[in-house]
Design a binder for these strands. Structure first.
Lengths: 334, 334
DNA sequence: CTGAAAGCGCTTACAG
DNA sequence: CTGAAAGCGCTTACAG
């Protein structure tokens, strides 16, 4: 492969000048810069990442710690991150966080510490205290997105407000027998920083505001299937609700599916609202709180670039937007 | 950060020995190896990726070129790849291929040529001849997964057989008025190597086997929405089919949705079969050809590791398995 | 504005 | 089995 020496020779300058011309760092006359760039393009020269990183300390690479890579939400967030990083020449290295303790140890003890990345984005995962400590000790900035730990700074949707908003929508439609179907608060999160707890809290607050104390809350796993099972119980039990606020769109699909099986008309006899703005929500005609995961990813990308002092990137607001999208799965109580 | 010198001093050996002990390359007495490893663990020493890569030429990193990061299928494949790479200490750097020509040029001219990766996995994307040439010229192995170009070796599902199998299922149920709803063959693919063409071909072959010449074929975009629109036309037009073979599950959802809107009973009056084994196929009770995307990713990971000569990894078979999963969206013709 | 040279932190052929 | 030393290919403080 062509090296920097050949480019220097072709352009009639030193390797130092080639480096400066190509990286854009340091002052250089426009003429020299242009000549060097032309020579490099000519020869098809590209700077070796390893050599450049070793000499400069900059890797131009961002690590992203992501749980459950195959969930739609995270894939969309990743796409948003990539959209911010790529145009600035940053690569994105993925670290999939599983439940396997030895895999996790490998990630925190080794992979992240190889100095391969200039910064880390952590997508809503629950970390052990030890893992948080290791993250904090990394010599690079860390940005969280929906991470339920106070010590990891980052971006966050106001999920309490999300819960309130979804519930308010149902209350405005005249519903009173509303059940919130959430998912279980994971172990080890900081008090009230995890998403299910906050959505639940918003629900409770909104219901209280409408004079309803001790509203009904149910839990299920964060999957279509478990939500379907739980919804079946709720809808066939005594005092079937007239509305269900599901904590995610995929859980809402489970509710819709259970209703269909039981012959319960949506929205005639049951209103359903979800959260996420999932890909297929429109297909299901599901009312939901859209939370723009692509834009969340873009902001996370901006946040880490801003921390790195990349030119022209300013830190985005820490609070992420959301929006109620009313579709056909909710209707006035009859 | 701790360097290799400190570890050498702590263990009472040279840096060469530390390197050998930690990498596992070269002969070394067990005692020395253990002593060095203990010292390294003690000091929390981790080899610098940049220095190691520069000196050895090995990056322990695989690049993955992926289209449309937010589609479920590719996210699942990625998860499979990661599952193979991580345990062997390989990182995975994502290169999102968009339609933007300047972004693509940046990827092929620069990003991939920085010698940051030891190998590249390309997930079913359509490449220009120039891009293919650049890929072939990379000094690292390239493995394709469903790539529609003959010069990129790789893994592939026998999509002709997939089309035949899906169609055969409908024929066995007694259907004759079957429409295949596929997506448009992209420009620039090698003849008959792209997925939609092969599924279509399998459909035509199976129909011909049943004595049906010139069977009906429709095209739509590869999305729920476009499929829904197209299905609406098919189902309200003259000679509405009794069965539709959709070329993807997401397209099949569009068909189901159109049928629901039109009050057409599935599977009573219309049978629908898809392809993919999508996440939500069970929820929709959709008969489909499951093609195990997670396993596809694992195989692609194995394939690239095998090319790199990683210990204990053997090249998987190039032909990927699939399986008809019969659910409630198909039934005998009435 | 530009160059000579040291140095980034490892790996590995060579020698013993 | 182990070490001394060259070298991987850049970047950047220093000097001019």
């Amino acid at each position: 492969m062509t090296g920097i020496e050949e480019v220097a020779r072709a352009a009639g300058v030193s390797t130092a000048t080639v480096s400066r011309a190509l990286s854009g760092r340091g002052r250089l006359s426009e003429a020299t810069r242009a000549r060097v760039r032309a020579a490099a393009a000519d020869l098809g020269y590209v700077v070796s990442a390893a050599a450049s990183t070793l000499a400069s300390g900059r890797a131009e690479n961002i690590g992203v710690i992501v749980p459950l890579l195959d969930r739609w939400f995270f894939a969309t967030v990743l796409d948003g991150i990539a959209a911010q990083l790529a145009p600035r020449g940053y690569d994105m290295t993925l670290y999939n966080l599983t439940d396997d303790p030895s895999q996790r140890r490998g990630l925190f003890d080794t992979s992240l510490r190889r100095r391969r990345v200039d910064g880390v984005i952590v997508l809503s995962v629950v970390l052990t205290p030890e893992e948080r400590r290791q993250l904090a000790e990394l010599p690079v900035p860390v940005v969280g997105l929906g991470v339920p730990h106070a010590e990891i700074a980052g971006l966050r949707v106001d999920d309490t407000e999300v819960g309130r908003r979804a519930t308010a929508h149902l209350l405005e439609l005249g519903h009173r027998d509303i059940v919130h179907l959430g998912w279980v608060t994971p172990d080890g999160v900081d008090d009230g920083l995890d998403i299910p707890t906050r959505r639940r809290r918003g629900f409770v607050q909104a219901m209280a505001g409408a004079g309803i104390r001790a509203p009904r809350i149910a839990d299920a796993g964060l999957t279509v299937d478990e939500a379907r099972r739980r919804a079946r119980e709720l809808l066939t039990g005594p005092e079937a609700p007239t509305a269900i606020f599901a904590a995610s769109d995929e859980m809402a699909y489970g509710v819709l599916s259970a209703a269909r099986e039981l012959g319960i008309d949506v929205p005639g006899s049951l209103s359903v609202v979800g959260v996420d703005g999932h890909d297929l929500a429109e297909l299901f005609d599901l009312t939901t709180i859209e939370q723009f995961p692509h834009a969340q990813g873009e902001r996370a990308g901006q946040a880490i670039l801003a921390e790195l002092g990349v030119d022209g990137v300013t830190a985005p607001a820490a609070s992420l937007p959301f929006e109620l999208v009313v579709r056909g799965s909710t209707a006035p109580r009859t």
